[in-house]
Nucleic acid binder design. Sequence first.
DNA 1: TTGAAATATGAAAAGGAGTTCATATATGGG
DNA 2: CCCATATATGAACTCCTTTTCATATTTCAA
Lengths: 101, 101
Amino acid sequence: MGQLPNEKILDEMQDLLSVASDSTRLKILMAICDEEHNVTELVSLVGASQSLVSHQLEVLRRHRLVTTRKEGRKVYYVVSDDHVNALLNVVYQHVIEKDRE
Amino acid sequence: MGQLPNEKILDEMQDLLSVASDSTRLKILMAICDEEHNVTELVSLVGASQSLVSHQLEVLRRHRLVTTRKEGRKVYYVVSDDHVNALLNVVYQHVIEKDRE
DNA sequence: TTGAAATATGAAAAGGAGTTCATATATGGG
DNA sequence: CCCATATATGAACTCCTTTTCATATTTCAA
């Protein structure tokens, strides 16, 4: 890559990274990257308020990083995109290996 | 991952993602992920002020994502970490494939 | 159909990060 | 030495995001 990608690509890259970089959203993503969870479960897993979790889930939905499934009055969320899983893995590995040094 | 990683791991993951998610820093990283560039080159590649580029390079240095090499009064920067390259690739691929839909 | 549980939403508050501007430092050339 | 170039730094300003608080909506159960 001698030249930078065009503006649109860069914008979309930045979007994805920004969405993943918030601490609440990152915890949510990590919680639902392998198995689905409903909102109440996420509230306790993540340790944030119901309102905050719901707001951040809306952000994840808007950016199409999660898929939802409704069961009664519960809504289950799961990471919808293999690239997002790959992203989380790469970041996780980076941190694990850095901590060894 | 039924349980979340511990707080320290999550913090460090968030750090990496936050650093990469700023538009100026992302452009810098993309510019120096394969080949090194000095600050002046980056200023024109990225299209930001010299001061801003320098500030953001300092952030990248502080987080150990880049390596520097001094040649006279020029300082060359390059991405120092394979995981960072992997991260950029995953994000890039994600965007490329999403754009097809 | 009434109440409780689960989730979503709107608006305001609180806080932090990016950017600029001015200037400092360092290095090499004449 | 002195000047120009290359890079770094500090402080202030601006803007945007996260978070909270209050409330609305939906769905199920009794």
